[in-house]
Amino acid sequence: MTTLEQSVVRDEGLNTINVDDNVAAAVKRYGTNQSALIPILQEMQEQYRYLPKDVLNSVAEALQLSPATVYGVATFYAQFSLEPKGKYVIKVCDGTACHVRGSLPVYEAICERVGLEKGKSTTKNRRYTIETVSCLGACGLAPVVTINDKVYGQMTPQAIVMILDMLEEEETSHA
């Protein structure tokens, strides 16, 4: 399993890199066939942590698809985001098993700890994005939370706050 540090993508200066060059590099790897669209978008999503408009337009032009089609694919899949995401993406499982074992109090504890505004999914400082997902397939560990794909099982509000405290400490010491 990847550690938190490994899975955190490079942060600074991404938006200044030429979009077209980035897309061209991905197109070189995956080709210009329509079927290359999703792998290219995945790679862009990983690089930018979301899909900026310029990227989608550039991908559309490279694959000779209409921007509306690329937008349609990008909005269809939950793995893609058109809004900038936080450095840490926290997914709280709210499938049946997690729900009955108390996922909602865990979710609320997270929101409170990171100071998420109501109606938003990413914190103002773009450090955290909090999402609920329907089932992560780890029902035996319910309730489950993942932070950048690292799995934390049998969570309680207290436990998740401790984990977040550690994360925050790391972040502030790095800064």
């Binding site: 698809l65 209409s66 509306a68 089609t69 937008y71 349609g72 909005t75 269809f76 899949y77």
Partner: peptide
């Protein structure tokens, strides 16, 4: 051959 419109979201 233009494709101004397409389905979006799910």
């Amino acid at each position: 051959g233009i494709g101004v419109l397409d389905f979006a979201h799910r």
